[in-house]
Simulated assay, not measured.
Amino acid sequence: MSYKEQKDFEQIDGWIAEAEAALADTAAQMEQAGSDSVRLQELLQQQSALEAKLEELLDRWTYLNELNERIADQKK
């Protein structure tokens, strides 16, 4: 595992939690926005970007976990 992969592996759970919290916050803001269509549009764009970021993080998490497992298996 490269240095960057190792650092990402150590931090990715926190990044995922942050992205999930940001999505929850955005959903709460959408509920409060009510009929403010301009604000709702901004929040929908924000939500879409956050969902894409979370998906990237989850893909990276899967890759790093599989890589870690392969390395662990090779050491056995």
Rank of each mutant, 00 (worst) to 15 (best):
Q32K: 15
L58Y: 03
I16V: 11
G14E: 14
A22V: 02
L23A: 08
I16S: 04
A49R: 11
A22K: 10
L57Y: 02
S48K: 14
Y63I: 00
E31D: 15
W15S: 07
L23T: 05
A24G: 07
N68I: 01
W15N: 08
A24Q: 13
W15D: 11
D59M: 05
L23I: 15
A17T: 15
Q11S: 13
E10I: 08
E66G: 06
R39H: 12
I71C: 01
L57W: 00
R60N: 07
K7H: 07
G14H: 11
E31W: 11
L50H: 03
Q41K: 13
R39V: 12
E20M: 10
E66I: 03
S37Q: 15
Q6M: 09
E55H: 06
S35F: 12
T26I: 10
E51M: 11
L54E: 09
K75Q: 10
S35I: 10
Q29F: 01
A19I: 08
Q46Y: 09
K53L: 09
I16A: 04
T26G: 04
E51D: 13
E31T: 14
I16C: 03
M1F: 04
D73V: 01
E5R: 06
D73M: 07
Y63G: 02
A33Q: 11
A21V: 02
T26A: 12
D36M: 13
D73C: 00
Y3G: 00
D8L: 08
Y63L: 02
L67D: 07
F9S: 04
Q6N: 09
G34T: 14
Q6Y: 07
L50I: 05
D36F: 14
A72K: 10
Q45K: 13
